[in-house]
Structure formats: C-alpha cells, structure tokens
Write a protein that binds this DNA or RNA. Structure first.
Length: 702
DNA sequence: GCGATCAGCT
DNA sequence: CACAGCTGATCGC
C-alpha cells in the first residue's frame, strides 16, 4: 500500500495520489490510477469545498482513469474538474496560486505503468528539475529503455528524483514470473477445465480492483468465452475490454463476486448464485490470482498451484519484482530515489539501502577513472543528426530547449500507444502554442495512418494462426480503428519485435551510468514531443476518447527462446487436468502435452524442471502423485477439502529476470549462443545496427 | 448520519 | 507469502 504522502520535494504545490491534509492546498492534483489507496481524500467534503472555492484547480489523469473515476457516482462531482492528458504527450500545466497570482509552469508527461487500466507514471519537468513519480507499476526488464519520452537526445533524461513503487523492493521478491507466463498458465488451466463439458465452469476469484482486465480479455480471446462480471458499465467506452465481458451468467468463466463467495463455492455455488445450467449441475474450480515470487537462485517458477480439490492459486502481480525495480531504477539512474511503499517487514532505511546504490550520487561520490570508449547506454538507434554535446548532461530542463521538429521520426510503437479517433485533432489545438500544435497535428496525422494500417492487419490476424509471433496466448486484443467511436486499445500490448535496446540491456555496459564518455556512434533524433509540450488549453480538453496504454513485456518468451539461451519450458498441465481432445484451436498444442505422472521419477522431475515441455513438477508432494482426485469424472460436487498444496503447472522460464542466463542448462533442442554469434551480435550493437532476432519456430507454433 | 480509523478477513 | 478492498466496530463531529 502506498505510503506516499502526496507531495514531491521539487514540486510541493502539486499533489499526487493523496488528497487530504496538506494536499488540500495543492495547485493541481494528479491521479496515477483508480485504486482506492491512491484516492485518499478524493471525495472528502474538505476537498469538495476546496474545489468550489478554487475554480482553477484541476485533477489530471489519463483518459482511462478519468473514465473509470467518473463512472463511480461518488466521484462524479469531479466531472468538470478532471482533465485527461493523453499518454506520452508532454503537456504544459500552469500552477497558479489563486491568492497571490503567482504562477509556475510544469510540463507533465504520462507514461504507461502497466499496473491496471489507465495507470500511468508522471514525469514532471520544470524549474526544479525533472522528476518521475511512478505510481504503481509493473514493467518488465528493459522496458524503461523503450519509453521514448524518458529519453532526450538518445539518452535517458537527467532525472533529479524518482518516487518509486517499492511494493516488492525486497530481495525476497527477487523474481516474479512474467505476465506472459502467468497468463499462459491460467489460460491452460482454464482451457483444460472448460473444454471438458459445457457444464465445467471456472471461477476467477479476483479482488475488487482494476487490473485483471487483461486476464479476462486474453482468456476470452483465446477461448472464445466471455467472462461474467457484476458490473461493466465503467468499460462502456472501452470496446476492447467490453467485448470480452458479459453480465449474462450463462458462461463458463466467471469473475463475479459476492461477500460470501468462498462459502458459496463450498457448496458448488458461484458468486452470482447459480449452481446449475439447464438442470445440469455445474462442475466448478476456482482460481485465485495472487502474487508468487522466487528467490534469486530459484529456477523453478510454478505459476499455478493447487490448493484444494477444486481450488488453484495462480501467479499474478500488478507490481514489479525486486529485480524489475532494480533494473528500472538503474536504467533511469536518478540523483535521488524515494520509496512510495515500505514493504512489510522492512524499514525506510532498508529500502533506501537498496535504492541508493542505483542512484547517481552514490556512483559519482568519488571520482573514478573510467576507461574511455565505452558505449553509452543509448537506447534507440536514431538516424538523425547529432544535436548536443554528449559529454555533459543537460543543464536545462528539456522543455526550455525549443526545437522545431522537421520530421516525424518517432518509432511506430510510440504512436500505436496513442489511440485517437479521427476528428479529434481539433481537441489538441491549443491556442497560444502554435509550435506545439503543429507538432501535434503532424503526429496526429501520422498516428491515424498508423491506426488504419493496424486495423487492416487485424483482419489478417484473425485468419492467421494467432501464434505467429510465437507468443501464443499472450496475443493481445487488437486495436479497432473505428474513427467514430472512442478508441480503446488494450493497455497491455504485445510486441513482436525485440529491439536492440533489449539486447543492450543485457550488455554489461548498459549498466554504466552517469556522464557519457563515449563518442556517439549514431546521431540522435530531433526531439519532437519532449521539446514541444502541448499546452493545456482552457477550452477544456474534454475528450471522450479512451487512450490506450500498452505494456510491452512480451518479448521475453520469444527472445530467449529464439536465442536458445533459456530452456523453452512453458507451462504444462498435468495429466490430472488432462483432456484428450485436441479440439480447441489451441495455440499451445506444442506446449500442452500431458504426460502420465506415474512415468516420471523424482529425479526426472528435477531435470524436467529445467527443461521444457513435457514436464510437470510437483515440488511439495511428490509422494502424492497417485492420489489425484481429479483423474476421473465425475468430480467435485461436495466435500471440498484442502490437501497439501500441489504444484500443477510449472514454467521454468527463468526469463527476463534471470541475472545469469548462461547458467541455465539448455534443452536438447535449444542452442547455446556460440561465441562467434555473440561476437557478431555485440558487434552489431556496438555499431548501432539493428538486430533482428529471428523467431525460432516455436513449440507453440504448430 | 457521516467520516475516519482500525481490526479482521480474504 | 501480499495485494486491494470490503465489512463491521468504535469514536468523534
């Protein structure tokens, strides 16, 4: 839970995610996402009164957050005072003291945080330097390097302070299985159950919070079954979520809730009250998403655990793991970092001990000789001209440097993150800032093109095996390019292509921080967005448009598999959950190859834990392998007890968080990178050539 | 009656 | 395991 008090040292007149006490005096409010622990005081009478007196005070958030917030009647009084800011669109905001008339300008940029729909990080740039408030986030390793607007001149911006989500900033939580692994595990479990019969249903025991939507949409997409929920009106303007949900109880996947749901479940009753369909009793299992983590040396990442006869726990995390946090922070390398959360059992000091070494100050404490000629942690290879002296960090905030962009050189993915219907370009018009307007219009035009082409390929996608990218169930809902309706692109986006950034991340030199010593091999692109903030006009940027947010962490499975560095072990179901029919249009047929438990010895299991597909592992109760009550039909009608936990699904994808990829034994079919190959790759990296990673014919790609 | 806070629960 | 959030008890306005 966030213990951030709302204010940042550099910009104390703005309040973020806290709206009580001192924050009542703020000149502007920011909400990173719609979770209650970040909304304290947001509907308190004291703040309501403040709003009535101070007509220039606004709440800034992402378009999706605005939508979610205003759907709740309790917050509807904010309607006239919420201003949605497009993702990744630097926007200038005036902080006015209404009493004295004193004014300060800041430029804020919203960056997708991957925590829940609408969740963002706030990057502020102004006279007291550049600071980043992360809100809650889950970003896979290397993702910061793909955020265009964290960079300037091809380098990470000079960030004074980071206010960081440290929920799992504890070595205990070293590794949390990737979103894709978890998703795949749940998908296969659900698939294995609901394909048994139309009366086999799954209850997803989710907490009342935004953040599970990508689970629902992916399950629905892959299995062709809508998810039953209690309410969906908050998604009314987000078709890509809405289409996968239903309030019709007659479906096989439920995520409905009830205060006595657990009790109901004991009696084979779903939270929505049904126990049968068409006079046939339902066979139900429950899956409870919860965080699972693994230590540094743990190679086994079991994403599904059986906790009872019909109960399962599935790995699911809204927050970055310890190693993901460290990766993020070390990439940003701010002067200071402050924890927003103190994990239970830790103290502020303990957390600071982790954060400090990743900050600039600790690294530049004493002058050190550094060998010249090392590559700087550049992120993207720009083809444009060099624009600034690389030897020194920018003394000025980026916004003060007014550059006139001459061409749009941003990468397509940047645009794909910003869904904007045609015809809304005028909403971006900001009187008094024609330079920015021009840029916006240019980018908008390009964006629209981009969208249309996306929608074209969408058609294709549906006719192609959706495993094209090798990601299988991770395939995420596509974008709709309906110019007339508000757009919603799923906030977690799949990225097929590994970028060179990713590779750079794995290079030792990528950890190098601080001032550059290397000549730039490649010039940087002219800055567009970062130097041309959109001004927040008074003509109310009201927009019903729902912007997308995308989190791109899908590269790891394909990357690593394609390089053969890691065992390509994906989640595999046990025979207990086996169903013989290959009836489903499975994207995972390769991975889904059940094997009889009895045929596998314990030692085999140990091995298999490190090597892939035809594997399961049962960490905790190997001696119980014969006692699976699920092997036969019919099943579970009553008498749910809780046998010792059994791990049913396993994935040994040590994945993105692996600190030492080469330690991992290879699978028979996997190839270790040969020194020459590595040399070749590194050579390409060093010279800035893009590396196209050839996708291995995936196991799943059958 | 409402809100803030806390314990308990999941 | 923790998370996010609900419920219910208590207290103060």
């Amino acid at each position: 839970m966030s213990s951030f008090q709302g204010q940042m040292a550099e910009y104390p007149t703005i309040s973020i995610d806290r709206f009580d006490r001192e924050n009542l005096k703020a000149r502007a409010y920011f909400l990173s996402h719609c979770h209650k622990d970040h909304m304290k005081g947001l509907r308190a009478p004291s703040l309501k009164r403040r709003l009535e007196c101070s007509l220039k005070v606004f709440l800034y958030c992402s378009p999706v957050t605005k939508e979610l917030l205003l759907t709740s009647p309790k917050y509807r009084f904010w309607e006239k005072r919420v201003r949605a800011i497009e993702i990744e669109t630097p926007t200038q905001i005036a902080l006015v003291d209404e009493a004295s008339g004193e004014k300060e300008e800041v430029v804020v940029t919203l960056l997708p945080a991957g925590h829940c729909p609408g969740s963002v990080m706030f990057l502020f740039q102004g006279r007291n330097g550049t600071v980043l408030y992360t809100g809650d986030f889950r970003l896979a390793k290397g993702e910061a390097s793909r955020m265009e607007l964290l960079h300037s001149g091809g380098r990470v911006k000079d960030i004074q302070s980071v206010y960081l989500d440290t929920t799992f900033c504890d070595p205990r939580f070293y590794q949390i299985p990737s979103r894709e692994e978890c998703l795949r595990g749940i998908l296969e479990l659900v698939r294995s159950w609901i394909t048994r019969s139309p009366h086999h249903v799954v209850w997803l025991n989710c907490k009342a919070a935004y953040g599970y939507e990508y689970l629902f949409t992916n399950l629905s997409e892959e299995l062709g079954v809508q998810v039953h929920v209690d309410k969906m009106d908050m998604f009314r303007n987000m078709p890509n979520i809405l289409h996968h949900l239903t309030t019709d109880r007659n479906t096989q996947i439920h995520a409905c809730r009830h205060p006595k749901a657990e009790e109901y479940f004991q009696w084979n009753k779903l939270p929505c009250g049904i126990t049968s369909q068409n006079k046939t009793v339902l066979h139900t299992i429950s899956i409870k998403p919860s965080t699972m983590w693994f230590g540094e040396r743990t190679r086994k990442t079991n994403v599904i655990v059986r906790t009872g006869e019909s109960s399962y726990r599935a790995c699911f995390s809204f927050h970055s793991s310890y190693s993901e946090i460290k990766d993020f922070l070390s990439y940003i390398c701010p002067a200071n970092a402050y924890p927003n959360v103190i994990p239970v059992g830790l103290t502020v000091d303990k957390v600071m001990d982790v954060l400090k070494p990743l900050c600039r100050s600790s690294q530049s404490a004493e002058p050190k000789y550094k060998p010249l000629g090392k590559l700087k942690r550049t992120r993207t290879i720009h083809l444009d001209s060099e624009e600034e002296d690389d030897l020194f960090d920018d003394p000025l905030p980026t916004l003060l440097r007014h550059k006139v962009p001459y061409q749009l050189t941003l990468h397509p993915e940047v645009f794909s993150m910003k869904a904007l219907p045609q015809g809304q370009s005028e909403l971006r018009q900001s009187p008094g800032c024609y330079t920015a307007d021009n840029v916006q219009n240019v980018s908008l035009a390009n964006f629209v093109d981009c969208e249309e082409s996306n929608s074209d390929s969408e058609e294709e996608l549906e006719t192609l095996p959706s495993l094209q990218g090798g990601l299988g169930p991770v395939t995420l809902p596509q974008q709709h390019a309906d110019a007339d309706t508000p757009q919603w692109e799923v906030f977690f986006k799949r990225k097929d292509d590994i970028t060179d950034d990713e590779c750079l991340e794995n290079l030792p030199s990528s950890i190098e921080t601080g001032g550059s010593q290397s000549p730039k091999l490649f010039s940087d692109s002219p800055k567009l967005f970062s130097d041309s903030p959109k001004l927040f006009s008074d003509s109310d940027g009201e927009s019903t448009h729902i912007s997308s947010q995308n989190s791109s962490q899908s590269t790891h499975i394909t990357d690593q598999g394609s390089q053969g560095w890691d065992s390509q072990c994906d989640t595999v179901l046990l025979s207990s959950q086996e169903r013989s029919g290959g009836d489903s249009p499975s994207l995972n047929k390769g991975a889904y190859r059940p094997k009889s438990r009895e045929n596998i010895s314990a030692s085999q299991m140990e091995q298999n834990a490190l090597c892939p597909q035809d594997t399961y592992c049962d960490l905790k109760s190997r001696d119980e392998v014969n006692g699976d009550p699920h092997t036969g039909e019919p099943d579970i009608v009553s008498g749910r007890k809780s046998p010792p936990e059994k791990t049913l699904l396993t994935s040994t994808h040590a994945d993105s968080q692996s600190s030492s990829d080469f330690e991992i034994p290879s699978t028979p079919e996997a190839e270790l990178p040969k020194p020459e190959h590595l040399q070749y790759l590194y050579g390409k990296l060093a010279t800035g050539q893009s590396i196209v990673v050839e996708k291995r014919k995936s196991l799943l790609d059958i």
